[in-house]
Each structure stands twice: as C-alpha cells, then as structure tokens.
Design a protein around this nucleic acid. Sequence first.
DNA 1: CCAATTGGCACTAATCTAGAGCTAATCGAA
DNA 2: TTCGATTAGCTCTAGATTAGTGCCAATTGG
Lengths: 168, 168
Amino acid sequence: MLKLTKRTEYGLIALVHLADQATLAPAGEPVPVVSARAIGDLFPVPRRLLAEALKQLQQDGIVNSTRGAHGGYRLSRAATEISLGEVISSLEGEPSLTSCAGLGAAGSNHSCEVEPVCPIRSPLARLRTGIWTLFEGITLQSLTDRAIDPNALFAGVAEENDGFSATG
Amino acid sequence: MLKLTKRTEYGLIALVHLADQATLAPAGEPVPVVSARAIGDLFPVPRRLLAEALKQLQQDGIVNSTRGAHGGYRLSRAATEISLGEVISSLEGEPSLTSCAGLGAAGSNHSCEVEPVCPIRSPLARLRTGIWTLFEGITLQSLTDRAIDPNALFAGVAEENDGFSATG
DNA sequence: CCAATTGGCACTAATCTAGAGCTAATCGAA
DNA sequence: TTCGATTAGCTCTAGATTAGTGCCAATTGG
Ligand code: SF4
Ligand code: SF4
C-alpha cells in the first residue's frame, strides 16, 4: 500500500494551515498560535486524531506547543525549512518500501528469510533512497503554493529519472 | 504505510528471475518457461503467494503462462519494456498516496469529507503523479542490474528535484 | 490413466489503521 | 482561588488490509 496514513494527512493539513497563518503574521510577533480546536473547526477532520498528529509533530520538533488557555501550536521553523520527508518520518515512521529497510547491522529481529539471496533488495533500497531524497527536497512552503501550475513541483524528475535504460 | 506488499515483492523477485533466465536464453527459443515451483525452490518464499502473484501478472499481460506439465511462466516482453510502475499497478493496484486519488468525476462513493476544502489535495496529487512517473521510468531490466554502482539509478533525481524552493 | 502445473475461490490469522474515551498537567482569566 | 480551555498521555474497540493456507477444477505431457 503506497498510501499515506490519515494521521499524516491530518498532520499535513494542520501544518499547511499553520504555515498559512505564519505567512499572514507581521514581523513583530513570533508566529500566531493555533489550537487543534480551531483547525478542527476549519476542516472536517476528527479533532482527536488531529491533536494526536500535532502532538507527534511537537515531539519531533516540527511544531512548538503552548499549553493552557489560549494555547495551541505554531511552526518551530520557517515553512521553507520543514521538509515533507521530515513530516512523513514523524507521523508514520521512516518509509521502508520493503520489510528489510532499516535493518542493517543493528536490529535483525525479524529479518526477511529471503534477504541473503534476495535479488530485489539492493535495487529497491536504491529506489527507497531516491524517494526519500525526493521527499526531503520538498518543503512545506511548496505545499502551501497550491494554486501554482502543476508542473513546477516535478519539473526535473520526470525527464531525468530514465537516464540508464528505459524504453528509449 | 509507504511500503510495498509482500505480494509485490514476491512478484518482483519472480520477474527478476524470469528476466535473468530470458537473458541467458539463446536467440532460437522464445524464452525458457519457469514454473512457480522452480522459483519457490530458489527463493524461500511461500510458493502459494508466489503463484498468486504470477497469476495476477499473467492477467495483466506482464507474463505469459503455459499450463499443464512442464508449464510455467515467461516474460511477455523484453525486460526493457516492462516498467516497475506497471508491475506495482498490477500487483497492488494503482498507488494512491491519498484516499482521494483516482476519484475524479466517476466514482465518488466514499470520497473524503475534507475534499472540498482540503489544502493538501492538489500538491499531493502532483506528488503522486511524480512518483508514478518515476516508477514508470524504471524498467525491469534496470532492477536486474543489481551489481552495478548504487548511484546509477537515481543519478538525476536527487539533484534535480529541488529546483523550486528547498533550502538553498 | 497419471503426474505436474496453472487457475479460481474461500477461508483464517495477524497486523495495521481509524477513531473514541478518559484523565492528568498547564495556563489564563474571572 | 476557582474555573474553563488546552495540550499530553494512555488504553481500548472496531474496521480494513495483508499474509498465508486449503481445496478443487482445468490443462498438458508422458
Ligand atoms: S530481503 Fe527481499 S523479499 Fe525480503 S523484505 Fe527485503 S526486498 Fe523484500
Ligand atoms: S481530500 Fe485531502 S484529506 Fe481527504 S483524502 Fe484527499 S488529500 Fe486526504
């Protein structure tokens, strides 16, 4: 299943909203604080899961939280300094692509039996690294630019990835 | 969960093996036929799931099957003409990345409630298209070259994907 | 006929996700 | 101080998906 979890989507929605709010803020205040309730009022998402996603993002240093009345969340950095890879890694763990992803020398608890003779492990690990690098190059800021032309995000990728064999 | 299913992995293992066998074949015969049992003897994978994956690949025209004794499978095309995207699409359906992936105008059976106001739908759809294009540019042949240097597969992607905002 | 193989269907168990419930700790304001 | 709003932490249930097995029909070569 090459699909993001709902937790990740909710977290991304919240982050995009926070980024929007931060953009609107003047230079005086650090950034406005938005509560999970406020975000839940704007978007029809389960408030609880939204809060849970934000909590996770706080633990990983992507957002800062303020407790108590008038509390809420704000981005810990500028939207241009937060990568999509970081967010995904926080909300649903490192993307593995295979079951034998991160197990190098340390945790070989339940490694795949095929591993010693697996013919696809190495290529898929390469692919995983490539996707990961791709995600880390996408900033939260670029996600907020949702009205721009659809070709901007992947200008170079589509043409550059087949420089080895492909159909041509 | 950004992870491939076991079915996809088993299918890819089988395909890589078939591609290897096809490469070793002389020009006379079309391509050697390999049974699911033979592949299951080579790699410690559940023979049944392997067969199921191959069956699916047959239905989508990626492999040809021969029934009866001495039956088995062979690639329906050259390994350079089979894309990873095609294989993944066959074995675990179109990768969606979000729940609102393929539903355009037709099937709005259980569309996400957030959709009308979702701030991440458009950017994530772009990202999905990009990943999809990336997968379609990777051929089965390139997966069989598992001994080459790890930098070849993603030579251009890592450097080209941040030409819009990023950190620089 | 017989053995080997693909093809098709159904079923169970494990794993993961989505969501809700509850309580404590923190902070601002009345 | 008292109260309400909010984040933080934990457990629990139901649903969806995956992983794997079982069984039998159809096909093909010996
Ligand atoms: S070793 Fe091969 S079969 Fe096992 S998890 Fe890794 S890629 Fe998949
Ligand atoms: S509309 Fe937004 S929240 Fe709903 S599935 Fe699509 S991306 Fe996710």
